[in-house]
Design a protein around this nucleic acid. Structure first.
Length: 336
DNA sequence: AATTCAATGCTGGTCCCCGA
DNA sequence: TCGGGGACCAGCATTGAATT
């Protein structure tokens, strides 16, 4: 050994070089190699820093992020927990959300809870990830449970099940729903059917109450309440049932996907998508509703503003009070 | 002999402490 | 100021000792 580690140059290059390999090749300790490779200013002589950088380049050294996380306590991972990914409104939201998280220098792991009836057990045994933060869309758990499962205080609750310790972002649906129902009343709507999502969802329960209150305030009679699961298929099934009965003046759906199913089943009532005897209202303001095939009046919030709020929570720019709320607005189209 | 429990090793990178 | 030694982190597997 000549002190510069030059006798190591003839050794075969390791397939997965570690900082120990770099240090050995450069003839320095692991600590010096770590400092030399750090972006921060740390006391290392210029000569040794140069040797370390050269050794790292020759070996093709890339830091092991999992190993680094042991001491930095940061794994650069953000968990996104969803029930399913078939919801079209999720598709509209997830792409900009993932892009924004990646712009933070982090990656996303998706955890699909699905229809597991023992969600906590499922996550405990199947999800052993430590993450910097978790974004919880799924209504599987309350905030305390989510914090325990992900061993993180950075649990952003978007499912309505937040507590005083958890940041949360919730769309304020009152304005949008009130605008939509008022719009219907001005068109002469006297009766309405409501097609809902899963009643176990806290957010869905609140949404239904807002519809009921708004309809009552406008003197609109609620003639039917059909339960779906936000999907196109469940909307189509609801349309099937509505086709068997005298049509109400308006059909309000708590997701655009369900409204699309209703529209396709009741196309005869909507020539070229335009309302005739019955009006149709969705929820989510999907990008699809801007297309000619599904010109559905809808209620929604600004997706970019929503993503910006989520990112503000993750970066610490938003500090509460929780929940942060985003306004929803009514977007009239041909069906209503 | 079977079971339980504690101690130890291992991974890779960072950081604190101390000596030069 | 610089550099080295070693603790530390989480979690799992293995080993050995102690207990039933």
């Amino acid at each position: 050994m000549d002190g510069n580690g030059t006798d190591k140059l003839c050794a075969p290059l390791p397939a997965n070089p570690t900082i120990s390999d770099v240090a050995e090749r450069a003839g320095v300790s692991r600590a010096v190699a770590s400092r030399a490779l750090s972006d921060e200013q740390r006391p290392v002589s210029a000569e040794k820093k140069a040797r370390v950088l050269q050794a790292a380049q020759e070996l093709g050294f890339r830091p092991n992020l999992l190993a680094r996380s042991l001491t930095t306590k940061s794994v650069n991972l953000v968990a996104v927990v969803v029930n399913h990914i078939h919801d079209l409104s999720d598709l509209d939201l997830f792409d900009p959300l993932l892009a924004a998280v990646q712009n933070m220098g982090k990656q996303v792991i998706f955890i699909r809870v699905g229809s597991s009836d023992r969600v906590e057990s499922f996550l405990r045994t199947g999800v052993a990830y430590h993450v910097d933060a978790a974004i919880v869309f799924s209504d599987f758990a309350d905030a305390a449970t989510a914090r325990t499962l992900f061993r993180s205080d950075q649990v952003l609750m978007l499912n309505g099940r937040h507590d005083d310790d958890s940041p949360a972002v919730i769309p304020d649906e009152r304005v949008g729903i009130t605008e939509a129902v008022t719009h219907a009343a001005r068109q002469g709507v006297k009766s309405a059917a409501l097609v809902t999502g899963r009643l176990t969802s806290v957010l869905e329960q609140a949404r239904i109450r807002l519809y009921q209150d708004a309809l009552a305030a406008q003197g609109i009679r609620l003639t039917a309440s059909l339960q779906g699961d936000y999907s196109y298929a469940s909307g189509h099934k609801a349309g099937e049932e509505l086709a068997l009965t005298p049509r109400p003046d308006a059909i309000f759906c708590t997701s655009d996907a369900m409204a699309m199913g209703v529209l396709d089943r009741l196309r005869a009532d909507f020539p070229q998508g335009r309302a005739t005897t019955t009006r149709l209202y969705g929820f989510d303001n999907l990008s699809l509703t801007d297309f000619d095939a599904y010109p559905i009046s809808s209620i929604g919030y600004d997706k970019q503003a929503y993503v910006a709020a989520v990112i503000a929570v993750l970066t610490g720019a938003a500090t509460g009070p929780w929940p942060l709320t985003l306004p929803t607005r009514f977007h009239p189209r041909l069906t209503g």
